[in-house]
């Protein structure tokens, strides 16, 4: 066995978040190692132990002591899947990052096909479970609905957001904000950087060990998070527009009520206190929203998510010196 973990950074980092998966650690390690060694990749496997209460960490550590290509990041307590993904992405050293589930439902044999898509010039290759092995009514149907909604709202037409098996160009994904429960929307969120996304059909296997950790209840959360993300993406692109336009509407309404009052006052020297107050209230709202818009501009300016920087990550540059990246068609 060759140990090449320390000397030079690997080309490829495979990130797997684990939470109470003690029985799956070794099979997972073996499956990935087999595929990677077959293909001769210079890779690292990053296991993120999300505060498991069973022997997940101990099992992973035992393997890591013998194989330096395996790295284990252990959380202090359980934080959830998104922070685990974020930690993996932060600590990965590869040029290309692959994320997958720790429950062996993803097939490591699909990884080479995702990678070949990245080599073709795509920035994100998304796994798409073509033949899902779960119950239709409780799992597949809700997820179909959710995917349709997500695709419609975000404008990123992916058929399977729930599949964790994805490959990313590290330079892009390392700049994408990732918190709360955003791991389901990574392609949508990363659309701030305008990446080229491609879908790749992958295998779906039945769970062998351990318990599944999801249920129907997530639809509500998905919708809420989605609204937030959609608004944020718009807000980031045009900080002033959302607040500015709502401020405009409030102001227009105020004027609409105030002008007739003014006319009545000039003609009859009397006016409705209620209507005038209403108009002033709306005007105040307009001013308030306008200033909030300005505040958003300020926040964007001091933040570290800069569109002008992020946009370059996925751009093709043809300046006569460097070769432009391979032509590709958007999905």
């Amino acid at each position: 066995m060759t140990h090449t973990g320390r000397e030079s950074p690997p080309d490829l980092s495979i990130i797997v978040p684990l939470f109470n998966e003690e029985d799956n650690v070794r099979p997972l390690y073996e499956a990935i190692t087999t595929v990677m060694e077959d293909q001769g990749f210079h890779y690292e496997l990053l296991l993120v132990d999300d505060g498991s209460r069973d022997r997940t960490f101990a099992n992973a550590r035992d393997i890591a002591l013998q194989d330096t290509r395996l790295r284990v990041v252990r959380f202090r307590r359980n934080y959830g899947q998104t922070p685990a993904m974020a930690a993996g992405i932060d600590h990965a050293r590869g040029r290309i990052l692959v994320t997958m589930d720790g429950d062996l439902q993803n097939d490591p044999a699909d990884i080479p096909r995702l990678l070949s898509k990245i080599d073709e010039g795509y920035d994100i290759a998304v796994g798409w479970r073509m033949k899902r092995k779960e119950k239709f009514l409780s799992r597949r149907f809700p997820s179909m609905v959710a995917n349709r909604i997500i695709a419609r709202v975000t404008g990123v037409p992916i058929r399977d957001n729930g599949c964790s098996l994805k490959a990313y160009r590290a330079s892009i994904i390392k700049h994408v904000p990732l918190y709360n429960e955003m791991h389901r929307f990574i392609p949508a969120v990363s659309s701030v950087a305008g990446p080229q996304i491609v879908e790749v059909g992958v295998n779906d296997r039945k769970r062998l060990h351990g318990q599944s950790k999801y249920g129907l209840s997530r639809i509500y959360k998905v919708v809420l998070d989605l609204t937030t993300i959609k608004t944020l993406l718009n807000l980031i692109r045009h900080p002033m527009r959302l607040f500015g336009s709502s401020a405009g509407i409030a102001m227009m309404l105020a004027l609409l009520i105030l002008l007739p009052q003014l006319y009545t006052f000039l003609v009859t020297e009397s006016f409705s206190l209620i209507q005038t107050s209403l108009a002033l209230l709306l005007a105040t709202l307009g001013i308030f929203l306008g200033f909030l818009g300005a505040l958003c501009e300020l926040i964007y300016r001091t933040g570290n998510l800069k569109l002008e920087r992020v946009s370059l990550l996925s751009a093709t540059i043809d300046n006569g010196i460097s070769r432009p990246r391979i032509d590709k068609t958007e999905i």
Binding site: A64, V72, R74, N304
Partner: peptide, 16 residues
């Protein structure tokens, strides 16, 4: 806009 600075997780240890 500041998410890359705010780490949501705390690491106990890293092996390798």
């Amino acid at each position: 806009t500041h998410a890359r600075e705010i780490k949501e997780y705390k690491i106990r240890e890293i092996i390798n």
